[in-house]
Simulated assay, not measured.
Amino acid sequence: MGNIKIHELIENRWSPRAYQTKDVENEKLQRIFEASRRAPSAMNEQPWRYIVGVKKDGQVWRSIANSLNESNQIWAQHAPVLILTLAKKHYTRNGAENSSRYYDLGQSVAYLSIQATNEGLFLHQMGGFSQEKAIENLQIPEEFEPVTVIALGYKGDLNSLPPNLQEREKQMVNRMPLNQLVFSEWENSFFV
Rank of each mutant, 00 (worst) to 15 (best):
T21H: 15
N118M: 08
T21N: 14
G128A: 01
Q30G: 07
E45L: 02
G53T: 10
R13E: 01
S71E: 11
E143L: 15
R168D: 06
Y154G: 12
S67E: 06
V147T: 04
N179P: 09
I135S: 04
E132V: 03
G106L: 14
H124Q: 00
I4V: 15
Y102V: 11
N3F: 13
N26A: 15
D23P: 03
N159G: 12
Y154S: 10
A96H: 04
I74C: 09
I150H: 02
W75D: 09
Q131A: 01
Q73L: 15
L9D: 05
N188S: 12
F122R: 04
A18D: 05
A42P: 07
L161D: 03
E119D: 05
P141S: 14
D57C: 04
R17N: 10
L68R: 14
M1F: 11
T148R: 01
V192S: 06
E8Y: 14
A39S: 14
F191T: 06
L138W: 08
W48G: 05
R175D: 07
G58S: 10
L181C: 15
S15T: 02
E25Y: 02
K22H: 13
N188R: 12
G95K: 02
A42D: 14
N12H: 09
A18L: 09
N66D: 10
K89T: 03
R49H: 06
S130F: 00
A134V: 01
I150A: 15
